[in-house]
Amino acid sequence: MHNEVASFIDSKVSGANATVNNPENGDSSVSVDASKILEVCQALKNGEHEYNVLQVISAVDYVDYLELVYILASFSKNTELLLKVKLDRGNDNNLPSLESVTSVWSAANWQEREAYDMMGIRFNNHPDHRRILTPDDWEGYPLRKDYIVQEKYHDMVVNPEAKVNTADHMFMKKLKETYPDPKKVSGSWKSDDGDAAESEA
């Protein structure tokens, strides 16, 4: 099924470079070029595959790059599709951006706001581009692997010493020692041994 979808995308949208990912474990997916996402989504919704529902937009931080997974479903054909785009990580002043698909499915409105809020991905031509779960003036993007929580928010200490669960710190430290790639371990607080500065860089 994924091969058909990929060739369908390529035939409808030039430059989408649809490729099929068939991992050994788990679900297959189709990757497309980030710059063509709007055209691809329009084609998938209106074309023969009838992906009439956007289930969710899930953003994943792979440290070297970010990935957006658009999970589409067709309620008429009873199928599911994982559509992926790759994005550069960018930095605070220059967030990665791509075209919003709100015009295709209204469901994308809040899903994209969440992706912006949690992962720091900008969506061009979004009708209401604000944070959604955290306050509007929050700093940083919590689900990024290098996120470190701000120390103060409106003169309030975010993690007061007396309320910090030290067991979490211990667990994080242990995890960092045992995990194959310590960079991919993401606690959102600064640890004592200064590896916070390392992951920020």
Binding site: P23, E24, N25, G26, D27, S29, Q55, V56, V69, I71, E80, L82
Partner: peptide, 18 residues
């Protein structure tokens, strides 16, 4: 689990949870 990703959805009382 081996490397990979899955999407699972079920019919919960309030709607589909994925």
């Amino acid at each position: 689990p081996a490397k990979g990703e899955v999407y699972m959805r079920t019919e919960c009382p309030r709607g589909e949870l994925g």
